[in-house]
């Protein structure tokens, strides 16, 4: 854990070298940190605040304000539940709730085993299949709570098979 903290600090320091100590550099810095690390760890936000001379809570405010930023590491598999108009009307929220219950995480979080992260997205462009869920790059249409169970089960089975083959 200590080693990981060190790496985060080093990466952030490296990125900060290219920026002057100005508040307006906050968003470009955060974007670059996320590009490098995949998310914004607490340690990284503290480091950025320190370097730019602003309160840590201001960095946190910006990081939670924009959808672009995520505060937990992305899971191995990303589940994106569409909340566009069509999907929302067709019960996207129900699908999202089902995932939250089944994975025991809230939207924007990652399961403790790092397997799945759950996200909300706006329109993925196939409204006729509403409500739509995208798992990694695979589009699932007409997602009911039963289908949610099915999706997660198929991943479980797939993983088991993989293990047997190994």
């Amino acid at each position: 854990m200590e080693g990981k903290k060190e790496t985060i600090s080093n990466y952030v320091c490296e990125i900060l070298k290219n920026y002057s100590v100005e508040r307006r550099n906050l968003l470009p810095v955060l974007r670059e940190v996320q590009e490098k690390l995949g998310y914004l760890p607490v340690r990284a936000m503290e480091k950025v605040a320190e370097a730019l001379g602003i309160p840590t809570v201001d960095v946190y405010g910006a990081a939670t304000f924009f959808n672009l930023f995520r505060l937990s590491p992305p899971g191995k598999h990303q589940i994106k539940v569409c909340m566009g108009t069509a999907c929302f009307m067709a019960g996207g929220q129900i699908a999202l709730d089902s995932f939250e219950r089944r994975l025991d995480v809230r939207t924007g979080e990652t399961t403790p085993d790092g397997e799945f992260s759950l996200e909300e997205v706006a329109c993925v462009g196939c409204c006729s299949l509403a409500p739509v869920v995208v798992v990694d790059d695979f589009v699932e249409g007409n997602v009911t709570p039963t289908r949610v169970d099915g999706i997660l089960l198929s991943w479980d089975i797939g993983k088991k098979k993989q293990r047997e083959q190994d």
Partner: peptide, 28 residues
């Protein structure tokens, strides 16, 4: 000039928090 509390999130979820939603006692 402390910087312990601030706005976080947005829209209906907007609220006053400390850094990383810690308790006030654990903030600056």
């Amino acid at each position: 000039g402390v910087g312990a509390i601030g706005f976080s999130r947005r829209g209906i979820h907007r609220r006053i928090t400390t850094f990383a939603d810690r308790e006030l006692a654990q903030s600056p």
